[in-house]
């Protein structure tokens, strides 16, 4: 099978800091890759570099599109890049304020990507919005409400609906359960797990929470100071960590 995404020696420095230092990995269709590491280890930088939100210093990002064509994202013209991000990719932000338009209704938030790709039928947009609100378990009656009236968990689920409406193949998430209560986190994780399965999503999931990767990630990459220190199947890495940093991470979460 061809990888969906190939990252090859990706590097990003801030002044003298190596935020990402020669990172390489393959992501296969349907796979959930967890990226774990302490705060400041370079997880967000890596995710934003892959999504093209920030320029990188070196390395390759190759994505295999819907038609099976490998595309070098670093040389792809901006117009195509932005289109691809709206049709085949989705990005879930830790802070819903960064991922949602807070001043327009939930329905408009979901409709925006459809409007971006040329949908011009109001009724169709409404029915798509209803469909995706149910998929993320938000009552239809909230469709015409502003996201600022939603709870934190609902806002994250709305972020999901907002990107899933164009049926992306690859979803990048940066600490999606970050600011949420434990019980709300559990509900969101459940939902994410079932959506990944039913929609055959490929996901790169950044978190500092081992519980989250244990539940969702097939594979795991451990980062420290901008470098990948360990990688493998999630259960193997967590049950038998080799690198001292991973051992420390795992034992820290075992402690009550």
């Amino acid at each position: 099978m061809q990888p969906l995404l190939t990252i090859d020696n990706l590097s990003k420095t801030y002044n003298s800091i190596y935020a990402c230092d020669r990172i390489s990995f393959d992501l296969y269709p349907g796979q959930v890759l967890g990226i774990i590491g302490e705060s400041g280890s370079g997880k967000s930088t890596l995710l934003n570099a892959i999504a093209g939100h920030i320029p990188v210093d070196a390395g390759e990002i190759v994505y295999c599109d819907r038609s099976g064509q490998p595309i070098n994202l670093r040389t792809l013209p901006e117009v195509h890049h932005r289109k691809l991000m709206k049709t085949e990719w989705g990005f879930v932000q830790q802070n819903p304020r960064d991922g949602l338009r807070m001043t327009v209704t939930a329905g408009a938030n979901i409709g925006e990507r459809l409007l971006d790709v040329g949908e011009r039928h109001y009724g169709n947009i409404r029915s798509e919005a209803i469909e995706w609100l149910s998929q993320v378990e938000i009552p239809h009656s909230r469709m015409d409400d502003l996201p600022s009236t939603f709870s934190g968990g609902m806002q994250q689920r709305l972020q999901l609906a907002r990107i899933l409406v164009t049926q992306p193949r690859l979803v990048l998430m940066d600490e999606p359960t970050g600011g949420l209560d434990v019980s709300v986190q559990a509900k969101l994780l459940d939902l994410m797990r079932s959506l990944v399965r039913t929609l055959h999503l490929s996901v790169i999931l950044v978190t500092h929470d081992i519980g989250v990767v244990r539940l969702l990630a097939h594979r795991l990459m451990v980062m420290q100071n901008g470098q990948v220190v360990e990688t493998g199947l999630t259960d193997q890495v967590l049950d038998d960590p080799h690198h001292p940093y991973t051992q420390q991470l795992v034992s820290a979460t075992l402690m009550p």
């Binding site: 117009v79 932005r82 327009v104 329905g107 925006e112 409007l115 790709v117 011009r120």
Partner: peptide, 21 residues
């Protein structure tokens, strides 16, 4: 940039909101 790339979706968001409201 939005003009150059013909990214006018957000303008239609405003129309959507008008009809909704």
């Amino acid at each position: 940039k939005m003009h150059a790339l013909e990214e006018y979706g957000p303008v239609y968001v405003r129309l959507y909101e008008d009809i909704t409201r």
